[in-house]
């Protein structure tokens, strides 16, 4: 199981981290949520039945961990735990990327999840399964969110 988990961890870490970053727009906080997600994945993996694809399953866990963040409105380490996570130097990212994440974090919570999943190239049918709304609703929302983001980018570039 550990080999399987290692593979999952390597394949999905960046994707899950981006989803969490889109939600909170704070690198450390996003890493925390991503780690919590993988802890749940590790704990639940033996019970995982292939009803949904493994990707859908992991993104569901991550999305729900994100939604749970309302319980932690202050930036305090969860349960007072501070593990020694080696400081990783962030590669400098372009302003535009930073602006995109900022714009996403300003959206309504559920929209943040939907657009993050869309930008991660997940099929709309799968997004519908992850968040639990109809595919048509997902399509409409993605269209609206993209319009808003494009508007913000146009304004930003002027």
């Amino acid at each position: 199981m550990d080999i399987q988990f290692d593979e999952i961890y390597k394949t999905y870490w960046q994707k899950i981290y981006r989803l969490c970053l889109g939600y909170v727009n704070d690198a450390d906080w996003a890493k925390d949520i991503a780690q919590e997600t993988f802890i749940t994945v590790w704990q639940q993996l033996p019970k995982f039945r292939n009803d949904s694809g493994i990707g859908t399953w992991i993104f569901r866990i991550a999305s729900n961990h994100c939604l749970r963040q309302v319980e932690r409105n202050k930036r305090i380490p969860r349960l007072g735990i501070q593990t020694e996570i080696p400081e990783i130097i962030e590669p400098s990212i372009e302003d535009k990327t930073a602006f995109l994440y900022q714009c996403i974090a300003e959206l309504a919570e559920t929209d943040r999840l939907i657009i993050s999943l869309e930008l991660e190239d997940i099929k709309q049918a799968e997004i519908a399964q992850i968040v639990g709304i109809s595919e048509a609703n997902v399509r409409v929302r993605i269209h609206r969110i993209k319009e808003r983001l494009t508007q913000k980018f146009t304004k930003h570039e002027q």
């Binding site: 390597k10 981290y17 780690q35 020694e84 962030e90 930008l119 991660e120």
Partner: peptide, 20 residues
């Protein structure tokens, strides 16, 4: 494209288990 540019180092799984 912009979205995918955001990456971060992968923390060691040992840290994950330490946290559990």
């Amino acid at each position: 494209e912009l979205w995918a540019k955001q990456e971060t180092g992968i923390p060691d799984t040992k840290d994950l288990f330490k946290r559990v």
